[in-house]
Amino acid sequence: MRPTPRIGQLGLGAAALGNLFHPVDDADAAATVDVAWACGIRAFDTAPHYGLGLSERRLGDALRTRPRTQFTLSTKVGRLLRPRTGPPGDDLANGFAVPATHERVWDFSARGVRTSVEESLIRLGLDRVDTVYLHDPDGHEREAFNCAYPELERMRAEGMVAAIGVGMNQTAMPTRFVRDTDIDVVLLAGRYSLLDQSGLAALLPLAAERGVSVLVGGVFNSGLLADPRPGATFDYAPTPAHLLDRALALRALCETFGVPLRAAALQFPLGHPAVAGVLLGARSAAEVTDATAMLYHPIPEEMWLALRTQGLLPPDVPVPVPTLT
């Protein structure tokens, strides 16, 4: 029997359950969570942004009957959802195939943060979340540090949430949060992968030093490392030619060791001591099953050495140590 992941080692990111780019029907969304649970996944992440609350509602529906002490749940703050008064349309301009019934209002004020969590709990139909992240505060740095973060700290002290952090796809601001605040966790998307190790420069070493956990999202860089081919996306945009060539070279070398590139991409971040787990987005039961298999696909030390030797990874980057099964 294949071992199942520990809580947090592999988490399910629920953006796709909010119809990210393409619709997912209710049955497939529920099956995705059901199979994740059957595979041993016990960490789940969502946000109001994902499908204008659809992801939170679907995830809450799927988790509400599960024993609450057996899973961890995170959501995010920074965007309030308010009824839209304009003409009807869709939300595809923001990446989600849902009706544009609401609009997102940026709000990193103390009141906005608390209101956001309260409204998320209503959509989830649950009495608490475990972790709350400041979501993409790139253009709101002063308010995030001076208003939103102190309110999250108060909510943690009150016991309303267990852990607080920041979720971003850059490294500079999360590094400042680790250095200057008392956050518990960073959700780092796309900046620590086989193609982008920018998190290694400052953020990950500082997080390890300060005892701040890092969850890595975007290990496939939005698709390129899952299936490198012309037309694949990198960070949700067309892939530059040099990155496609690099991804193809990574895949070719991995295949000489009998290792799928997906397995290498999924396991690579776990080699760093600051990384507590990987958050993987999935829109179907099949994708969850594949991710679980890739997490435990054997990877020999020689493959990581070859990646370094051929310049496909930096010579000093930490890599996973094979475990005995």
Rank of each mutant, 00 (worst) to 15 (best):
N221K: 04
L73E: 06
Q197V: 15
L203D: 02
P269W: 14
R176Y: 06
D61N: 14
G53K: 06
T85K: 04
L54W: 02
D180G: 02
R229T: 05
E143V: 03
D136E: 09
P23Y: 00
G86L: 01
R79Y: 11
A36Y: 11
E153D: 07
P298M: 01
P99I: 07
L81W: 06
V317T: 15
P240R: 08
A291S: 12
Y192K: 06
F257A: 15
P238D: 12
R66F: 07
Q170L: 08
R308I: 04
V317I: 15
V77L: 02
L206D: 06
E153W: 07
R57D: 11
G311E: 08
H140Q: 14
D130C: 01
E56T: 04
V35W: 05
L195D: 09
G190D: 14
G139T: 12
A237Q: 15
D290M: 03
T233G: 07
T233S: 13
L20W: 13
A247G: 09
A62Q: 14
D34H: 09
R79D: 07
Q310R: 13
D91H: 13
Q70K: 10
F108H: 05
L80W: 06
L81F: 04
V321H: 14
L243M: 15
G95V: 03
L81Y: 05
G51V: 11
V288A: 00
V216S: 08
L244W: 05
P298V: 07
G60L: 09
L81N: 09
H102D: 15
S213P: 01
T292A: 13
V212T: 11
L225S: 08
V186S: 06
L81R: 08
Q70G: 14
V33Y: 05
A14V: 00
M160A: 14
V319C: 11
Y133V: 03
A38H: 11
F96H: 14
L261T: 07
P318V: 05
P88H: 03
L295W: 08
P240I: 08
S198G: 05
I164R: 11
T101I: 13
